[in-house]
Design a protein around this nucleic acid. Structure first.
Length: 882
RNA sequence: GGCCGAGUGGCGGAAUGGCAGACGCGGCGGAUUCAAAAUCCGCUGUCCGCAAGGGCGUGCCGGUUCGAGUCCGGCCUCGGCUACCA
């Protein structure tokens, strides 16, 4: 017997060898077929890797290693998405330059990733904050700018004057800043915006041709939110103004009993009568202090009558105009025709303010006898609609849209929920925009001379001057200028050229910028002439497998697709329209399962009486507050379908796995796990936990089981093997295992692949001298999962080159099935016996054998056989009666 | 409210419409040991039974089928995402 398995010794040894031999360098040339296997690169936070990271990374690493063995040239790179707020906030607190913090964090991440034995080609590492990378991010921005896809606009932002900063929606609570509780107002601020809406239809259509999870495609479709309807023009009474509305239900035009403008709508002041002006202005001001979030969360609808009226173009009816914040300025035209009978929101509003409700669609084609009690939003037949009565909804929509168009009162219109993408941030730690503006000044603005910046004349920094670098700062605190931190850096901001003054853009790009194209840079990361070469694009695009969390289902994946399409239009993507051909999301890893008991004033309360509310836990019987208390697993037993306290069986507990979080103190650190069990055990355990896509609870006891598997594998691999061919049964098991593991890797069912390997391992472990052929096959199969132990055993089995360089074991299909099989026999749906038959035996043989079987015959005795169903090599079913 | 997903032993989980519970954890028993850890072997859904054997079992109700964890319809519970988009 050889020495014990010491993971850290084996793992560090092989990591050094891989590094020395450059084992995972991407092959040059294009003689091998290619596969591009990509992970979503991490943000290198100060906390280091958590156990969620290695889950997706291990999955892709298994596929990458497997594909190399299958004869593919594999591109499997890693990098860092390193711009972002935490480093900037750290800088504000400590004065440390974000670049310094970022580099430290990257080093930690890189070390941790290497310690897990991932087969990345580290020579291709990218860091989005590296000026050599920023240069090309800026270069791509300029391509967008040239194409008219990047423009400036006044966008409503959450401005907090007290903090001197623009806040994200999540940072605003009840109209006040999350930090400090200062008032926050919606103000328009000049921003860079990307015209993603121009690509809405292509982004939608492209989804039909990619192998992505359905849920993700659905989310993107809903995010884009294409809806077809009509634009309808309502003339304002007593003025020349026209209010345009967008509606998906032009067939309900006869039921429009009021109109609503968003408080920000341009015509609000125009239509308001003097009598109503005070109330309207107060409402508009109040609305400007509410965030989108607040508006949506308030349950009750509010609004004010403007005093003005418009005319319904189809019947000349007089329609009162209201303003209300349930109508969003940013969608459609910012104005609606309200049809309370057939829209839930309008119904609610009309009911509240006593506005008439006119039914214009009914299921039967006859108007209802009773007043409606809720909005009827289903299609049906038109009523109360003049000449259109009786028309089906769909036909009505088409007819009236055509009629409106003919009369000049409207037209067909397509709307999207998707907004253009606000692409600037008032922060320091991001890519500066390679844009500057002419300045009018009577002196040197850096010395305090007055200046005017002509933002309407943006000028691109020439490509050859990129990258435009960030200035170094002493102080990263946001200032009182909404234009951003960089606006204070006068020496950087202003410069003279040909005797004229210019000012740089002081906004920076959002974190998404770098992650929108990193998969392209990986193809050709050291190219100094171009962001990547046409040859590289032709060789590697598209990404064949992209693995990452479903939290990026919409934004990152939509933005990256958008940029890719723009770059496609620029002729840079080798005619590949979609960047990520196949996408897989790894599931979340939760903390260990916890059991919770509840106490009210010290007394235990059974869980069925406890309900979680926003304030905490309460007793549903009297509404009293209840405390949650964690219970150790030893103090628990199962009773029926519930868990109860062993000491008091009347007390029902709840069991659930909470998310890992610092505040719960249940975060598992991969470094600790590697120290105790080894990287191979961690990798294999994370794959063994369950299906890759599923949310799964962590359980440290279970990793011990995987470690035992590796210990036994070590025992098998270090025994002196037999040079004889495997016995028939073992040979067949070996081939079945090759088949299963290969199939499972391709379908990314790693948990069942591991269990198949465990079965073979257990068989081999029972032998004193396991046959070499089977042992070597097992080591090869294990290699993508637990590469270090596999390399070590492969070497000990007498091989001199890396197991990664070996071709994947061949399956003999004839050996993946047995000659003699056991076939169950059912009588009336219950298994009553089993037959041992030659594979391929016919029905007559099976029936004869079944009837000869004593146990089965007993169930047939005295009964009439109604039917026999013989499924070849699977099952024999006999249906009897009587 | 909407969308997506999931409910199977004490636990994580297996099962192209064809033997439910593979594999692993935990538990119980045994071997080894002076003893323990580690390791190895056996048992382990549940109920009845000394046993042979049998009954019941995949959240609930119903359906399709010779046969349903799997397909269909209706619920319940949990999780994630999203939320007045006219």
């Amino acid at each position: 017997m050889n020495e014990r398995y010491d993971p850290s010794e084996v793992e560090l040894k092989w990591q050094a060898i891989w590094e020395r031999d450059d084992t995972f360098r991407t092959p040059e040339g294009d003689d091998l077929p290619k596969r591009y296997v990509l992970d979503m690169f991490p943000y290198p936070s100060g906390a280091g890797l958590h156990v969620g990271h290695p889950e997706g990374y291990t999955a892709s690493d298994i596929v990458a290693r497997y594909l190399r063995c299958k004869g593919y040239a594999v591109l499997h790179p890693m990098g860092f998405d390193a711009f972002g707020l935490p480093a900037e906030q750290h800088a504000i607190k400590t004065g440390t330059h974000p670049a310094v913090t970022t580099q430290q964090n990257i080093e930690t991440f890189r070390r941790q990733l290497k310690r897990l034995g991932f087969s990345y080609d580290w020579s291709r590492e990218v860091d989005t904050t590296d000026p050599g990378y920023v240069r090309w991010t800026q270069w791509i921005f300029l391509r967008l700018f040239e194409r008219g896809l990047a423009y400036q606009d006044e966008v409503q932002v959450n401005w907090c004057a007290a903090l001197g900063t623009v806040l994200a929606n999540e940072e605003v609570i009840d109209g006040r800043s999350e930090r400090g509780g200062h008032p926050v107002q919606r103000i328009p601020l000049r921003q860079w915006v990307l015209r993603i809406t121009q690509y809405a239809d292509r982004l939608l259509d492209g989804l039909d041709h990619i192998d992505w999870p359905n849920s993700t495609k659905t989310m993107q479709r809903e995010w884009i939110g294409r809806s077809v309807g009509a634009e309808v023009r309502f003339a304002v009474e007593g003025a020349d103004d026209v209010i345009e509305v967008f509606t998906t239900r032009p067939d309900t035009l006869f039921g429009a009993t009021f109109m609503v403008l968003a408080p920000e709508h341009a015509l609000v002041a125009e239509v308001t009568t003097d009598a109503q002006r005070g109330a309207v202005e107060a409402y508009v001001t109040a609305a400007s202090f509410k965030s989108d979030l607040d508006r949506q969360q308030s349950k009750q609808k509010t609004g004010v009558f403007t005093g003005g009226y418009a005319t319904n173009p189809v019947n000349g009816a007089r329609v009162p105009i209201w303003i209300a914040d349930y109508v969003l300025a940013g969608y459609g035209t910012g104005a609606i025709m309200a049809v309370p009978a057939h829209d839930t929101r309008d119904f609610e509003f009309a009911t509240q303010y006593g506005i008439p409700i006119i039914e214009v669609v009914s299921a039967t084609g006859a108007a209802s006898a009773e007043p409606l009690t809720e909005a009827m939003t289903e299609p049906g037949k038109a009523v109360n609609s003049g000449a259109y009565d009786g028309l089906e909804t769909q036909a009505f929509k088409e007819r009236i849209t055509a009629d409106l168009e003919a009369a000049g009162n409207g037209k067909r219109r397509v709307e999207y929920k998707l907004r253009d993408w606000v692409f600037s941030r008032q922060r320091y730690w991001g890519e500066p925009f390679p844009i500057y503006f002419p300045v009018t000044t009577d002196g040197d603005p850096r010395q305090g001379a007055a200046f005017t910046i002509h933002h309407d004349e943006p000028i691109a920094v020439p490509d050859e001057e990129l990258p435009l670098r960030l200035p170094d700062l002493e102080d990263y605190e946001p200032g009182d200028d909404p234009a951003g931190v960089l606006a204070r850096v006068m020496d950087w901001r202003f410069f003279q050229k040909d005797g004229r003054w210019y000012a740089r853009e002081t906004n920076t790009m959002p974190q998404w910028a770098g992650s929108c194209w990193y998969y392209l840079r990986f193809m050709d990361p050291h190219n100094e002439q171009d962001p990547w070469s046409p040859e590289a694009a032709k060789r590697w695009l598209p990404v064949d497998l992209y693995v990452g969390g479903s939290e990026h289902s919409v934004l990152h994946l939509l933005y990256a697709r958008f940029w890719h399409m723009v770059l496609y239009d620029a002729g840079l993507t080798a005619e590949v329209t979609e960047p990520f051909a196949r996408l897989v999301h790894q599931g979340m890893i939760l903390g260990e399962i916890e059991y919770t008991a509840y106490r009210k004033a010290g007394e235990l309360v059974s869980a069925e009486h406890v309900k979680k509310t926003d304030e905490g836990f309460v007793d549903t019987r009297d509404g009293a507050a209840v405390e949650a208390e964690r219970v150790a697993p030893e103090a628990i037993k199962k009773k029926g379908s519930a868990f109860v306290l062993e000491a008091d069986e009347g007390v029902v507990l709840t069991s659930r796995a909470p998310k890992m979080s610092k505040s719960l103190g249940n975060v598992v650190n991969p470094d600790d796990i590697i120290a105790r069990f080894g990287a191979d055990a961690l990798r294999t355990y994370e794959m063994f936990m369950g299906p890759l896509e599923a949310t799964k609870p962590w359980n440290t006891d279970n990793i011990q089981g995987v470690r035992r598997f590796l210990d036994r594998l070590w025992a098998v691999g270090t025994k002196t093997p037999s040079e004889d061919a495997p016995a028939d049964a073992l040979l067949r098991l070996t081939h079945k295992t090759i088949q299963k593991v290969g199939d499972d890797i391709e379908a990314m069912r790693f948990n069942t692949a591991i269990s198949a390997m465990m079965v073979l391992n257990n068989e081999l472990n029972a032998l004193d001298a396991p046959p070499r052929a089977s042992v070597e096959t097992l080591v090869q199969l294990v290699h993508p999962f637990a590469p270090h132990i596999a390399e070590e055993l492969w070497e000990r089995l007498g091989h001199t080159r890396s197991v990664q360089a070996e071709p994947w074991p061949e399956v003999d299909p004839a050996l993946t099935v047995d000659d003699v099989i056991e076939v169950p026999v059912q009588v009336n749906g219950k298994v009553r016996g089993r037959l041992t038959l030659a594979r391929g035996a016919d029905e007559a043989t099976a029936i004869a054998a079944a009837e000869a079987d004593e146990g089965i015959a007993a169930h047939l005795a005295g009964k009439a056989v109604v039917k026999r169903i013989w499924v070849q090599d699977k099952i024999l079913t006999i249906v009897v009666k009587g």
